[in-house]
Design a protein around this nucleic acid. Structure first.
Lengths: 229, 229
DNA sequence: CGTACCATTGACGACGGTCAAAAAACGTGG
DNA sequence: CCACGTTTTTTGACCGTCGTCAATGGTACG
């Protein structure tokens, strides 16, 4: 859980200097701006990217690998908020402080952008301000959908998770999960034992096949969809 | 669940005409703008304010009464997303469509503002755009806190709810709940029987007192805080 | 005063958590 | 490439919490 990768010395200045002048920006979309303004930083497995209550000085975009954001309750229970995959932006806060922590799940490459640079751009470009808002709105929807998951039973939760992952990483009929059973459990509000048992149950029902622990083949999406409540 | 109050004829035009010229706005805060630009509409008990998937043409602010926003799952289960009390703004979407439905819990008065007017104002006033974003950010935090509640046990959920309500309506040591046990259950992901039993349990532990079904006196906030996990 | 609606209480069972152990997968170094 | 230790996953047995179904009690409102 400790920070294994610090932001490289001089990164801050470099990122600020990379801020393009207005006329350099051909497409003013937020995604493009982030790509232009950022520096790619490698994080190793389980490295902390930022912690809860830290100032939200940077915005992040997954280049390679996967990231989990989470909160830890007083008694040690961990609630995973979201998994971010390549192309996803995370750590963007409407206020100045992070409301959760973020870690690399496996080794990962993360594009890091100074938030102040984005904000400055948003002040000049209405389009960017609008996209920042929209992005927070997207995040809001994701979290709201997540709430829906948490009122379902174990089977529905696991199926919902599988379908969500299948949609986010369209790689034919199988999913390669970057995260452990424990991670999935903490995301779904279940124990890892229940996740494991539910997957075994789905396999015995011929809906899926556990090719390996981390590779799941979806055999019957229709049946899965029906199980999804 | 049917709409018992339609938005009065001519409301749309009136709201648009109320849009003040830039120099008329003394304090450009969003709250102020909403108050100036809106029209107050009465809704009766259980009246639908807007429905899921409807276009989000208006933004709402509770003047009197209380509002619940919710989703209904395919099998009829209802998930209440939030309760809104006087002063709270709801129905603000970053995108164009409502992601849930909203109903008045009891008779209520709601300030209704055209979203397009707000958006136009935001385009001219950076401050307003920033506040719109910040408001969605607030909502995001509320929903994230709600997720934390849903991984706790029944007692912790009910206690959390009581403390949240006590904080939002600071009226000494008691809470007057506008909503039914069923509403609370659907908000906490519990049945109304479990809510009722948990409240009875807390009362027998002398932490609270059920003065009436809807009025709850908090006797020992320290003990409640400890129960909150 | 009667009729809904809402809240409470009880009995019982299922689902998922807990604890423990075995099995499988993974990485490392010989 | 194999042997070994570690981590992850699976499986089993048992139990507690909360949901379900049903009956009773309370409250508000016409």
């Amino acid at each position: 859980m400790l920070t294994q990768n610090a932001i490289p010395t001089g990164f801050t200045r470099r990122a600020a200097n990379n801020l393009p002048a207005r006329e350099q920006i051909s497409d003013c979309s937020l995604t493009n701006s982030i790509n232009l303004m950022g520096a790619t930083v490698p994080y190793s497995r389980n490295a902390e990217i930022f912690g809860e209550n830290e100032p939200a000085d940077y915005v992040y975009k997954v280049v390679a690998g996967a990231v989990r954001t989470y909160k830890v309750l007083a008694d040690g229970r961990r609630q995973i908020r979201a998994f971010y995959l390549p192309g996803d932006v995370f750590g963007l806060e409407a206020n100045d402080t992070h409301t959760f922590s973020a870690e690399a799940i496996g080794d990962a490459k993360i594009l890091v952008v100074k938030r102040s640079a984005l904000m400055a751009l948003a002040t000049r470009e209405n389009q960017v301000a609008c996209e920042l808002w929209s992005m927070t709105g997207q995040e809001l929807r994701r979290v709201q959908d997540h709430i829906l998951v948490l009122i379902k039973n174990a089977k529905e939760r696991v199926v919902g998770f599988l379908l969500e992952m299948a949609e986010r990483v369209p790689s034919g009929n199988h999913i390669d999960l970057p995260m452990s059973r424990q991670d999935i459990g903490d995301y779904l509000g279940l124990t890892m034992e229940t996740v494991s048992r539910t997957l075994a149950d789905l396999e015995s029902g011929a809906s899926i096949e556990l090719a390996s622990a981390r590779r799941i083949v979806l055999h019957d999406r229709g049946a899965l969809g029906r199980l999804n409540g």
